[in-house]
Design a protein around this nucleic acid. Structure first.
Length: 234
DNA sequence: TAGGCCATCTGGTCCT
DNA sequence: AGGACCAGATGGCCTA
């Protein structure tokens, strides 16, 4: 029955990740989740009371041809494949090291990371907008055409602005930006984008003259880059 | 070996 | 009626 489970196996379970998930579920979202579960459970009990209707439907299901069942199964399989494709697409734009030697993010990790990533991008965007308005004031009258664009220091030129903000927000302790010190693949701290990360392993090695292997230091996908340019060009 | 993650099947509801 | 969506059950694979 299990067709390709092995080929796409991915593991993102770790004590840190479990902790991250429990942290995630210890907030208000968990309360909402519990309420939803309660509500659904109640609905199920109500459904059980309407057993007669269900029995009739079940009888009709028994008359289903094998072909019909296979068709439904195939559709469901295709639906799940599409869902997984979408999940892969989401993984591709996540700030997560990707490659044959790197474990794929699990689905739950992907969703949690995506959520935090979006939140972090939003806050960094706000921060940048605030910075821009602080620097230029409310108007731009002091900066005529004679003033060229502000050039970042050479050391930062290679990095995408959003990447810089990622590094700055996450803190150098949590994610050293392309230094000679190694940093770890996503753990709970990474997933949560916490400013402090207690344990750093040596999963990524930085070699002089070589690009940082972490996704934070990779050029952002065109979709994100264009998004950021859109928001920055305001 | 236990636990995590996954794909698949299945039966249910809801919508068009 | 048919399809989409959802959630539970099941069993396989992999890792610690």
């Amino acid at each position: 029955m299990d067709s390709d489970a092995g080929s796409t196996s991915s593991r993102a379970s770790s004590p840190e990740f479990v902790e991250a998930v429990s942290n995630f579920f210890s907030n208000k979202m968990f309360e909402a989740y519990c309420k939803e579960q309660e509500r659904q459970h109640g609905a199920l009990q109500l459904q059980d009371k309407a057993g007669g209707k269900m029995k009739a439907k079940r009888d009709s299901m028994e008359e289903d041809t094998q072909d019909g069942r296979l068709k439904v199964n195939s559709r469901e399989r295709k639906r799940m494949h599409d869902l997984n494709q979408a999940m892969d697409g989401l993984r591709e734009v996540m700030p997560y090291a990707q490659g044959p030697s790197v474990r794929k993010l699990s689905k739950i990790s992907t969703l949690l990371l995506a959520r935090n990533y979006i939140m972090m991008l939003s806050s960094s965007l706000d921060e940048m907008k605030k910075l821009v308005s602080d620097v230029y004031g409310t108007g731009h009258q002091n900066h005529g055409p004679r003033c060229g664009p502000i050039r970042p220091p050479p050391a930062q030129v290679a990095m995408h602005p959003l990447t810089q903000s990622l590094h700055s927000i996450m803190g150098t302790a949590a994610m050293p930006p392309c230094s000679s010190s190694p940093h770890s693949p996503p753990s709970s701290g990474y997933l949560g984008f916490r400013p402090t990360m207690p344990s750093l392993s040596s999963a990524y090695r930085h070699f002089p003259g070589m690009p940082c292997p972490c996704s934070l230091c990779q050029p952002l996908p065109a979709s994100i880059a264009s998004l950021s340019s859109l928001s920055m060009s305001k």
